[in-house]
Design a protein around this nucleic acid. Structure first.
Length: 626
RNA sequence: GGUUCCGUAGCUCAGCUGGAUAGAGCAACAGCCUUCUAAGCUGUGGGUCCUUGGUUCGAAUCCAAGCGGAAUCACCA
């Protein structure tokens, strides 16, 4: 790390000249602005007092000292209080050849990608994620893995745009953490019980006439969702009649409607394990899971561990009762059990109803316990929308109240809502964007655009379909992941399928172009190019691209620690843009000077590797041709 | 009403652990394909970084207050 060497040298110099000690870790070097000559910049203002000289003079003193003390510092300039350091080209090219060597030779210059030998899996995070459990067994991360929970669907409705952001975020965060060296468990908590499922069941029993996904040709989750909608519309009818007749409020009317009572009755029977009810429940949930699996598969997300609330709420109830016995919780006269959060200046939280049934919070307590017992995780990350900020705050406090050792390991990765151009999605107003429909549309657009450009005539039908999928999903994923998770985001359907500018397909296209060049170069030529060439002199674009690639490790570390795929996404765009500029201005294979041509090949090679690796951490595939 | 989050170009977003002249894309306009993929590249115009105060050599970035928006404060999940 040259930054560290420089920082130490600066600290030494300050000590020598002023007799003051500075911790080298407090000396921060930043990247030099693009419009100024230099690679690294030291802001000297913090040292002027110690030197009792002008900023320019201080910069000069430090610059001269660094020239002597640090080999790769070749030259410096001083602009006001900024000391700009220029590193030797050999430093950058050294990085390049080392990185290319480490990442191993890209073999994706042809369509046959899977003949890689295994040695590169160690270093390629995108590969690493496929290796699953069992790695790092002797290290801390394995003993205390990170559990990332995401998706968390209800089983009464199909997945929609909100789930899409959740799934993409969760999956990507898991990948980023893995790439940063953690052992990660991807978990899904399925909300498979409750009144909402009973509504779908009731509607199916009453109006379904035994229809199944097979007989209707409908995806299971869609079919069940239809019955949920059917229930709601029938309920609205009943409630409407009651309101007119009795003049009661809408809520009262809904609650009093016969359908609602039937649904509640169904829930009670479910909790009592009525065999007939349980059978319908299992059957309909089964349909939903098949539907979800198809959607997940298409979306490219997966899970290592499934949790079902129908299991975890029981554990939750036990813990709550235990807490009651221990005196951590208290019971009211009606028999309901509560957590007193008065010491945190919050209202009490109900954990068990008077009739002994449990609520959402109860179930989350149980889930946390089960995870703790099975995995002893160092951290439990919950990818859940910011509408539940309060819920997770309370969950953490209750677990503390119960004296659970894992209470502090809970982290709510809170993300903002997805809004549509005309406001929030509202199921009642039918403005919900269905996940499957959305993917269909993205792929269809990718198909249309690709066919218009007509570069894929010689593709097989199979390859074409795969390509459309890759591009369509790339557009969707990048569009969603490039914005800071914390922020609400606007989903504009028209912009999301754009493929020019700051988009997923732009980055994919850059990758495909590189592959095209590498393919043309051929294997022997690539081998020749990987040899370190000390004499190389870089031009501006080459150096700019190389410096951008150099940042990868830093960006990965930040994206992982901040759990922000957006960091990686925006960096990917920067890499692609830098490459395109370089590619536009300089010829790679047609360059007459052999060593320059070789250098550019290596540079392209590393760019391709960085793009492929980084995009994989976003869950985005890159095509070798498009 | 309390709490939390957000406010940057016409639009969508970067930049925020304090550093130089605040950046991209889209949209608009003007250029660049006999040369490795033009899904690309280059240029022009476009800013009260919500407001006011404070801290500092230096604030879009930190602090306080205000304004505007969102979420939440369920015996829903």
């Amino acid at each position: 790390m040259i930054e560290k060497k420089i920082a130490i040298a600066v600290a030494e110099t300050v000590a020598e000249v002023c007799g003051q000690t500075v911790d080298h870790r407090d000396i921060i070097l930043q990247k030099t602005r693009k419009d100024v000559e230099g690679d690294l910049t030291l802001v000297v203002f913090p040292f002027v007092k110690a030197f009792r000289q002008s900023p320019e003079q201080v910069a000069g003193i430090l610059g001269k000292a660094l020239l002597e003390k640090v080999d790769d510092v070749e030259h410096y300039t001083v602009v006001k209080g900024f000391l700009n350091l220029i590193l030797a080209d050999r430093y950058w090219s050294g990085f390049l050849y080392n990185a290319v060597d480490q990442s191993a030779v890209e073999k994706e210059t042809t369509q046959h990608q899977d003949r890689d030998s295994g040695h590169r899996q160690e270093r390629d995070p995108a590969q690493h994620q496929e290796t699953g459990p069992g790695k790092h067994q002797d290290h801390d991360p394995a003993r205390h893995p990170v559990i990332v929970e995401y998706s968390s669907p209800n089983t009464n409705k199909p997945l929609h745009l909100g789930h899409v952001r959740n799934n993409l975020l969760g999956y990507s965060v898991a990948c980023l953490l893995e790439a940063a060296g953690k052992k990660v468990i991807r978990a899904n908590l399925v909300n498979d019980r409750g009144i909402h499922i009973c509504k779908s069941m009731l509607a199916w029993l009453k109006y379904g006439k035994g229809v199944t996904p097979e007989t209707s040709g409908k995806k299971g989750d869609k079919l069940v969702g239809d019955f949920y909608v059917k229930f709601e519309s029938e309920l609205r009818k009943q409630a409407g009649e009651i309101m007119e007749g009795k003049g009661v409020s809408e809520e009262e009317a809904r609650n009093g409607a016969p359908l609602m009572q039937e649904a509640r009755d169904l829930l009670r029977r479910w909790e009592q394990r009525d065999p007939g009810v349980v059978e319908v429940w299992k059957k309909m949930n089964g349909w939903v899971y098949e539907g979800f699996d198809a959607t997940y598969k298409r979306m490219g997300v997966r899970f290592d561990k499934m949790y079902y609330e129908s299991d975890t709420y029981l554990t939750g109830r036990e813990i709550v009762l235990e807490g009651l016995r221990d005196g951590a919780l208290y019971q009211r006269e009606d028999g309901s059990v509560w957590a007193d959060l008065g010491r945190y200046k919050m209202d009490g939280k109900l954990l068990l109803r008077a009739d002994g049934t449990s609520v959402y919070m109860t179930q989350d307590i149980g889930t946390a316990q089960l995870r703790y017992e099975e995995f002893a995780p160092g951290q439990m990350i919950y990818v859940v929308g910011n509408e539940q900020d309060h819920h997770f705050k309370v969950l953490k406090l209750i677990l503390q109240l119960l004296g659970k050792p894992y209470a502090d390991n809970i982290h709510h990765l809170s993300y903002g809502m997805v809004e549509l151009p005309d406001g929030r999605m509202k199921s009642r107003e039918g403005t919900v964007v269905d996940a499957d429909d959305l993917m269909d549309e993205m792929v269809a657009t990718a198909r249309r655009t690709t066919e218009e450009l007509g570069k894929t005539h010689d593709f097989s039908e199979e390859d074409k379909e795969a390509l459309y999928h890759t591009i369509g999903m790339g557009a969707l994923k990048y569009f969603i992941l490039r914005v800071d998770p914390r922020k609400n985001m606007l989903f504009n359907p028209e912009e999301s399928i754009d493929i020019n500018g700051n988009t997923g397909p732009f980055i994919q296209y850059s990758y495909a172009r590189i592959c095209s060049v590498l393919r043309k170069a051929g294997e022997p030529r690539l081998q020749e190019a990987f040899r370190m060439d000390e004499s190389i002199r870089m031009n501006k674009k080459e150096k700019q691209l190389l410096k951008t690639l150099y940042d990868y490790d830093q960006v990965l570390a930040e994206a992982a620690s901040e759990m922000s795929p957006a960091k990686m996404a925006n960096y990917m765009y920067e890499v692609a843009r830098e490459f395109n500029q370089f590619y536009h201005d300089h010829s790679i294979l047609n360059e007459p000077d052999r060593s320059t041509s070789n250098f550019r090949l290596s540079l392209s090679q590393l760019t391709a590797h960085v793009i492929k690796t980084g995009m994989a951490l976003l869950g985005i595939e890159v095509p070798v041709r498009m």
